[in-house]
Amino acid sequence: MAAGKEIRTKIKSVENTRKITKAMEMVAASKMRRAQDRMKAARPYAEKIGRVVAHFSQAHSEYKHPCTIARETIKRVGLILITTDKGLCGGLNTNALRLAINKMKAWQGEGIDCDVTVIGNKGFGFMQRVGANIVSHLTGLGDTPHLEKLIGPVQVMTDAYKAGRIDALYMIYSRFINTMRQEPAFVQVLPLTPEAAMEKREEHWDYIYEPEARAVVDALMIRYIEAIIYQAVAENMACEQSARMVAMKAASDNAKNVIEELKLVYNKTRQAAITQELSEIVAGASAV
């Protein structure tokens, strides 16, 4: 019964694996709900600040913020890549990284250099491996995104844009469509393109700025950019949990199938061994 024992240990090990994937699935399911709530909680702020920025772009202000002016020649771009810290979440990171690599290749083909800010461990390791120029990174975010942690890495990029070291800033993250579907998304962050599709007001108007336009608009723009990125991070986290839940569910189902197949093989061999033993005994008895 050597083969039988081997199969038994194999079944045991697959069962253990299944227990782990099942547990991870349930953990991801409960975290997913919270991550989705956080994603939704971030939405009003992003909407409101988007509206304020759209208002501002309509106002006839004498001060034009550098973040809203598109540059003619693009020599160097910045890329903010948002990935997860941990793996085991299906193709989520792979898809985002593939998109990033394709974009970077395209830029390389046009002779555009690229600086990268990475959020999340997976993207960081990958970008290091491909030898991208990482100007800042953020890992170990945990389960709740905190705006406070994002300020530093984001400012590295906005400073570079203001100083003219980069001419455009893009972002890649996973967009949450529903629990089963997430897609990598490529978004332009700078120069800003607020949705100015609102009703155009004819009259000439401008804000009262206190204390002065420059300081207020700077503060507004920085917050707007952060809000965009914060929302992307929150969305990415919701994606991570749901992708992990789906991946772990698939793994558990798979393990179940494997166990069933193995059990079938085990029972067959056991039966065969018993039959053989019986026939040997019968043959032995008839020989005596």
Partner: peptide, 24 residues
């Protein structure tokens, strides 16, 4: 009213940016 969640200031933001750069 767009309320901040983080305590901010130009110096503080600057320090955060420098810290992020240094880490990278």
């Amino acid at each position: 009213i767009l309320s901040d969640t983080a305590i901010r200031g130009a110096d503080l933001d600057e320090a955060r940016a420098l810290e992020a750069k240094r880490a990278a």
